[in-house]
Amino acid sequence: MTSLTHLQRLEAESIQIMREVVAETEKPVMLYSVGKDSAVMLHLARKAFAPAPPPFPLLHVDTRWKFRAMYEFRDRMAKETGMDLLVHINPEGIEKDINPFTHGSAIHTDVMKTEGLKQALNRHGFDAAFGGARRDEEKSRAKERVFSFRTAQHRWDPKSQRPELWKLYNTRKHKGESIRVFPLSNWTELDIWQYIYLQQIPIVPLYYAAERPVVERDGALIMVDDDRMPLEPGEVPMMRKVRFRTLGCYPLTGAIESEADTLPAIIQEMLLTKTSERQGRVIDHDSTASMEKKKQEGYF
């Protein structure tokens, strides 16, 4: 008898979910955030449809403030997988020059990410979008379904969420409605890292510790990724050996000091230092906007 390991079972489940979406929806897309969860999701998509490339494009909702290393990595992966890469930047954001410094992280995220995502989905008419969110990320996500239904206005309505029994997913929806699908729902952070390690999945180098120029902002280490980062008068960024546990807009993403420059070392560090990963995101500390609110507005 063959016993499947937990990673094999998680992998099979994610692949099953992706195939269901592709078979039952008209125009799926994969939200590609360039982070490690996206890397795993993309890898699983390649497995699900091999030898063909995944039959949907990648969509990167860009804010213009991602790390440069993320853009390089993104373009490399699109080339390697043979998938179409769609990049959407909210034109309103460009016009008004929305940025995290003058507008604050809440407005920046809302305009560039939440609104940008809605625009991109509307523009291309995607009716299903894969996202890399996991249930273990936050207590309030424990009840999230794998298939999350959105109204034509992209709002999440608690009443229209459906029970998920066995391996059966009800993908039916009215015209204009869409689904966010989370194939990694049952993965934990440790599972993700272990899978990356086992499958040798390429990830953005920012996850590995290296000397990088950083400044301190409200106790967080912010990388000076380009000259748009405003410095205090006289401020000189320091080169410190840091890495990132999550990736987002560089001015909103805190680095941690670390010596972990290999995957096992990263996993080791994760297991020994116990602060949950979302702590690194400045976005969470900003105002009292809860995950719930963001979810209703369509952030995820």
């Binding site: 424990a142 009840k143 459906r162 029970p163 049952n186």
Partner: peptide, 12 residues
Amino acid sequence: GITIDVAYRFFS
């Protein structure tokens, strides 16, 4: 008022 109230939690 979530219609189906099942929370999934993880440990190992």
